[in-house]
Design a binder for these strands. Structure first.
Lengths: 331, 331
DNA sequence: GTGAAAGCGCTAACAC
DNA sequence: GTGTTAGCGCTTTCAC
């Protein structure tokens, strides 16, 4: 591999000059600049990122810490981050934390040792993580992390979209399958849904009935909640159920099928997340999709510009209407 | 951050000695060794990986190139690789190729510039990729890549497992939904299935009827193939269908439901891959699971030991029997 | 505006 | 056995 020295020699200039034209901005005479560029081309010279990193204490690597890359949401996030990063000549280092705060800390520290340009972390440690002693920019993604700027979905607003959707279709007996109230997201989605219902109801001059049940985010929990919601006389069961996750929603659809309740004619179901499975179930699931590419893009921007203590950024999700939602039945 | 110099000073030795105790194997007098170790602890010294990489031309980074991290199979692979790597103090750089050979080449070269310990690549360029000019070890994962050693599932053997399973349950009219014959895996799975049926049939002294239909790996193709297989008189339709992918299998189950054919009582379905969705459908899907952790582990070993031109390694998949397979119906 | 030279933190000869 | 030292390839003063 050719080094900067070879280039300097071939171009008949000093290494300093080569370095300057590589760094673009400096004031190098056009004549020399051309000679250097010619030499670079001829030798197919590419600066050694490792040497550069040693000298400048900063490499063109972005660290990405996620709980579990196997989770489709994080996988999508990772993909977007990697794509955007690659577009800027940056590489991505991936680390999983398995939702273990101690392991997360270790992973972050290992990464920090490599002097990355910055670190993006989807944190597992809800609150109790201590500030890192580093000047490497860190941005929290999806969930807050210590006091670093956080780029995330506005779960409140997003959930309220589902509420408005139900109201617009005339539903007045509504169920909400919430997530575990220990988690911040679950609480945010729940309160957003409630708020949306309240405000939307006022606007439309109606007063919807709301029943909230809580459970895990998963399929099984959804099925159980579904049975509770639906295993009662028609006049007492909700005509629409929104959930805190698509898995729950799919569980509820399963429960509905078992009880011979037809979706969407007798029951509307709206999920949250838009997981790949959402389009594979019948009917296809209406849901709220987070704006993953926007999040990735903003987070990366924050890092690259290393806007020290930036402000949190929140993006609303988008309502995706599919076959599982329809107008309220008239009994 | 403390440097090796600080440690040397505090321990009252030279940097060379410190470097030696850090490298473990050298012959350093126990007395000095202890002093150095004490100094390391006191200063919380951690060697700078960047400096080390510059000096040795090799870092403790593993490159991982996949077509698309969003694909659950690659995500699982990535997770395993990352976990195993982290256990050895190695970090993982992730890059997506979007199944584009040109982009893949670029991604590999970018990675190569960072002098990684080695690169794991799940290649998109089926055949036509040229050898890389580098002495950094490369191992192909899941699919062959140029002439580098390849760690993959033995698709033939794995598919034959499905065939034997069907025979053991007494099925004699069997359908196989193959993948697109342009892809190597599809061909391997198909021929493995056929071979399994032939050999197994001989062993059991039976001569099963086999009908093969081909289509894309996806859900929709499965549904179409399913309709062709199943939309005929009972006496002429297969009592069991194996597929080249779980998506196809799930499509077939959907087709069966539409035609009021009950799985597994009237029809056995066996997929391939064990995607997360496989346990969410009703009945749950019997399938062949690739041994992802074994693959990841072997591939990593090959890299770390940089067994130059090692041999290809193939692992058989494992049959996972679930609700979608049952004994052949007696008509 | 450009060249010379001093390191970034580390490893690996090479001396002793 | 241990210390000394010469770089790895680059950026960035500091002179001129």
């Amino acid at each position: 591999m050719a080094t900067i020295k070879d280039v300097a020699q071939l171009a008949g200039v000093s290494v300093g000059t080569v370095s300057r034209v590589l760094a673009k901005n400096e004031t190098v005479k056009p004549r020399l600049q051309e000679k250097v560029e010619a030499a670079v081309r001829e030798l197919r010279y590419k600066p050694n990122p490792v040497a550069r990193a040693l000298r400048t204490n900063r490499s063109d690597i972005i660290g990405l810490i996620v709980p579990d890359i196997t989770n489709p949401f994080f996988a999508q996030l990772a993909k977007q981050v990697e794509m955007l990063a690659a577009g800027q000549g940056l590489s991505v280092m991936l680390a999983n934390t398995h939702d273990d705060p101690a392991y997360e800390k270790q992973q972050i520290e290992t990464l920090l040792d490599r002097s990355p340009l910055g670190i993006l972390v989807v944190s597992a440690s809800e609150d109790n993580a201590q500030q890192l002693a580093t000047d490497i920019p860190i941005v929290a993604l999806d969930r807050t992390f210590v006091s670093y700027p956080c780029v995330a979905t506005d779960h409140e607003v997003s959930a309220s979209l589902a509420a408005l959707h139900l109201l617009e279709m005339g539903h007045l007996r509504i169920g909400y399958a919430a997530g575990p109230s220990e988690t911040r997201v679950a609480r945010a989605r729940e309160s957003g849904f409630v708020a949306g219902l309240t405000i939307g109801g006022k606007d439309l001059g109606v007063k919807p009935d709301l029943e909230i049940l809580r459970g895990a985010f998963d399929f099984t929990a959804g099925e159980e909640l579904g049975r509770i919601f639906l295993n009662r006389p028609v006049s007492q069961r909700p005509t629409a159920i929104a959930t805190a996750s698509d898995q729950q929603a799919i569980g509820i659809m399963r429960a509905a099928r078992d009880l011979k309740i037809e979706v969407p004619h007798e029951l509307t179901v709206v999920g949250f997340d838009d997981i790949p499975l959402a389009v594979l179930v019948t009917p296809r699931l209406s849901t709220i999709r987070q704006s993953i590419s926007q999040m990735a893009s903003s987070a990366l921007d924050l890092l690259v510009q290393s806007k020290g203590i930036g402000e949190d950024i929140k993006y609303p999700g988008r309502l995706i209407v599919r076959g599982s939602s329809g107008p309220a039945p008239v009994f």
